[in-house]
Design a protein around this nucleic acid. Structure first.
Lengths: 225, 225
DNA sequence: TAACCCGGTGAACACTGTTCAAATACTTGC
DNA sequence: GCAAGTATTTGAACAGTGTTCACCGGGTTA
């Protein structure tokens, strides 16, 4: 009765081989230069065989994006031994920026590329990422509790505000739009400091958002699909 | 003696037709779906003819990016009738974000796409954009002069800090990574306010940068090419 | 052993950017 | 007006892309 299981294992092994080959190719050549035929050659299968495992090329990239989120969430799990809540918050977002430097291809796939927009829709599949987000929101909350951040702030909006600043730096760096004299790392530090300072200053935020997607939105989403 | 000139005009007309066709295609279908053959069909020329006007497809996109910068700089020139220097500064960056909403394809080409990174290198060609940047830097300086921003701030770094925040929001919006409950416009407002509040709070910025690229960098750049 | 099923394959389709020899259109010199 | 020369335009081809599909072969099941 182990036949079915062995078949399943084999299938999973090939699936992994495809993803590994795709990852190797796209970290070394950029995801614009990854082709089904190159992947096929690397795993010594015919190009058509890949379509028995993934319905399209985009789905391979989608799986890689998921892998990227796993990578980010794992790396961000360590190094939270900051002294103060504010230090831990700073470290968490610094790690977000560092990730964009260490894994530029993954980062582009996860946050920039327009061909993989399903991410914000696939609820179940990215539950772990939302879990991570919730964790950072707790750090933000502890900053509020300790008085490092004003009590008027919404943790979810703080999260987004800090995210987009560093996302901007990362995009600027990855798309090579900085002037020769400018340094992305220093800019990241400045953005981190300026944003935190701004948040501490007691500005009133307009955005309405919560760490988890509201239930009514989830229902509307389910109805749309 | 007008023949040479007429020839040149004809050439320029075809060049324009190519760019117009490319622009139409790429604002309606996204620049990933623009092909030389589609452009050729639109202008009723053979695909090969286009290579008499542009050395490669990337150069067409590069020309479009330049056009986008012209569009941004022009649109940003109006509406500077803010009451206070700070209002004018806010309006300038709000327009940057608005541009990303009004012309998403241009914006992606100008600030996100990795296949057009020459922009930061082509010095002469984008002199007008640096001129615009200098203008915004002057607004920032007037904010400093009026006491709306601390005198310790470097205008160029202020410029970058505000840019990357809104760039982050724009990228988030364009790549469709916001959660269903989140609103990009509100987020842009928050980022604008938080960043300005942070800058006003008297943080010390680490980045060293100037509005114009330092001369020694220009020399190094010229040597590299 | 025969039937079945399912994974892998080669070939093909419709695309893509780009190149190049050949043909055409036009300008110039006689 | 005709020939020579020069741009410009073209069709065809090359090498590549994602994707589909009829077909084949081997392991599984009856």
């Amino acid at each position: 009765m182990g036949i079915k299981e062995r078949q399943e294992r084999d299938r999973e092994a090939v699936r992994r081989a495809i993803l590994d080959a795709a990852r190797d190719l796209f970290v070394s050549e950029g995801f614009g230069n990854v082709s089904i035929r190159k992947i096929a050659e690397r795993i010594e299968y015919s190009p058509a065989a890949i379509y028995g495992y993934f319905p399209s090329k985009d789905d391979i990239f989608f799986a890689l994006a998921e892998e990227g989120f796993r990578l980010l969430c794992d790396s961000a799990s360590r190094e939270e031994t900051g002294a103060t809540p504010l230090d831990r918050l700073r470290a968490a977002f610094r790690q977000f920026y560092d990730f964009s430097c260490k894994h530029p291809q993954y980062f582009a796939l996860m946050f920039v590329d327009q061909s993989v927009p399903r991410i914000s829709r696939e609820y179940e599949r990215f539950a772990f990422a939302r879990e991570k987000k919730r964790h950072v929101a707790q750090i933000i909350q502890s900053c509020i509790d300790s008085g490092d951040l004003p009590a008027t702030l919404n943790p979810a909006v703080v999260f987004r505000t800090m995210t987009v600043g560093l996302l901007g730096v990362a995009v600027m760096r990855l798309s090579d739009r900085l002037q020769p004299g400018e340094n992305a790392d220093d800019l990241a530090t400045d953005v981190l400091n300026v944003t935190l300072a701004g948040l501490r200053s007691g500005v009133t935020l307009y955005s309405k958002s919560s760490v988890d997607c509201p239930l009514e939105e989830r229902a509307a989403d389910a109805k749309a699909s």
